[in-house]
Every structure is written in structure tokens, then in C-alpha cells.
Design a protein around this nucleic acid. Structure first.
Lengths: 103, 103
DNA sequence: GTTAAATATGTCAAATTTGATATAAATTGA
DNA sequence: TCAATTTATATCAAATTTGACATATTTAAC
């Protein structure tokens, strides 16, 4: 588990991989944090699509760009929870839906 | 509502205040976003205290500094949801508690 | 298959957030 | 009171995230 190859892959994708200490100490938090972000991005994509909005249109709504929306929906690690949450709020995502996504 | 004086006050505290268009378009989102952050920071402080941790001790747990923890708990606008959520996850905040804080 | 629209991917300067540091102010316990 | 601990506030260089842009790839409609 967690061999060099997998580590390389994760790092190439932009995920941080620390040393053994950090790994043992942070893995659960990091794991939950990543899970949350992925859940939010999936929901964002689903919701945008159900509203028949293109990424470009939605980008305009949040004063951002199509490429950044694509990154959000792709679960890009370089996207903050802040941006994701603001995006969901913009689409008036019901609170219950957000709650369901929490770890 | 939203006179110059109040605007000055908000800006001095670090909150963004846009023009009329942005205001009308974003206020609900911004408001919800700020509410969420404040709820999270309050909860963080409460939980840290209930665990009898000093800000310094907790800062060590999240590899940050006492001053940043103070800012988190003060609801400083220059603190991301990411940092707040990671902090709460570190303190193993029960999911139900996080749910209760949602707008 | 061709075309057009939508989405994905890469890059980058500017803006924002970060941990660290210093120090002031507040709280605690004698 | 007062010294020690804790918390608040300010500043800053380094790191990260941002929107914008270019361009490649995929999807959709014909």
C-alpha cells in the first residue's frame, strides 16, 4: 500500500504526499477533506447540468472562467472549498444536499 | 441599509463590498458563505476549549501557528473554508455538529 | 465525416492565503 | 498585585489559488 509508483501518480496529479510522520498524522484528515471536495465537485456538475447551464454560462454567474469551472468539476486539488461552496450556493443548492455530502 | 458608514466598517474589517450590481447579484451567496464561516469558527473555538487545548497546542496539531488559530476563531475573513474544515476534521468533529452549522 | 459547441488541459501574472514572528492585550492563579 | 500563560493583532515573505487565455479533446447534430 502506498508504493512509490502510486505516490508518483498522486503527486503528478497534484496531491501532496508527505513523509511517514505526516502520513500517519494527517491521512484521515486529508482523506476526509479530499472526499468532501470530490463530493462537492460531483454535486456541482450534476446540479449545473440539471439546470442546463454550460460551463461558460455558469462561469459568468460566478465571475470566473470556463476552464476554472472545468477544474472544479474535475476535482482538481488546486481548487478551494471556498470556491466550490460559493458555486453551490450560487446554484441555490438545498442545504440538505450539502449536508448529505459531509464526511 | 448598507450606507457608506457600514460599508467602511466592513471594508476595514476585511470584507469585500462591491458595486450595486455585484451587491444585488452576490449578496445572498456572500451572506450565506460568511454565515457558514462564522458558524465553523465558533464551533472550532468551542470544540478546542472543550478538549482543553490551548491555541498553541492546537496550532501544532495542524502544523500552523497560534496567531492563525486566533484568526480562525475570530472569524477573520482572510481564512479559508479549507483551513477551517481541516481544523474541524482534526478535532474529529462529529458530522452531526457540522450539519447543524450549515445555513 | 464535418462542423460547431462544449469541455478538458496547460500556462501564467496577479491576487490571496499561509505560517512565522513580534508584540500587545487579556486571562488565570497565586 | 503581579507574574505567567493564553489569546489577539499586525506584518511579511513564501506558497497557493485565482481568472484569463490558448489550445486540445470530446460531444452533438446534421
Amino acid at each position: 500500500m502506498m508504493d512509490k509508483k502510486k505516490q508518483k501518480k498522486l503527486e503528478a496529479a497534484g496531491w501532496k504526499v508527505g513523509n511517514a510522520e505526516d502520513f500517519l498524522e494527517l491521512t484521515q484528515v486529508e482523506s476526509d477533506y479530499i472526499s468532501l471536495k470530490i463530493a462537492l465537485s460531483r454535486h456541482l456538475k450534476t446540479r449545473r447540468q440539471s439546470l442546463r447551464l454550460t460551463q461558460k454560462d455558469f462561469a459568468g454567474m460566478i465571475h470566473s472562467s470556463q476552464s476554472r469551472v472545468a477544474k472544479m468539476e474535475a476535482g482538481d486539488p488546486g481548487v478551494t472549498l471556498d470556491l466550490l461552496v460559493k458555486s453551490l450556493l450560487t446554484l441555490k443548492t438545498p442545504i440538505e444536499d450539502i449536508e448529505k455530502m459531509l464526511p
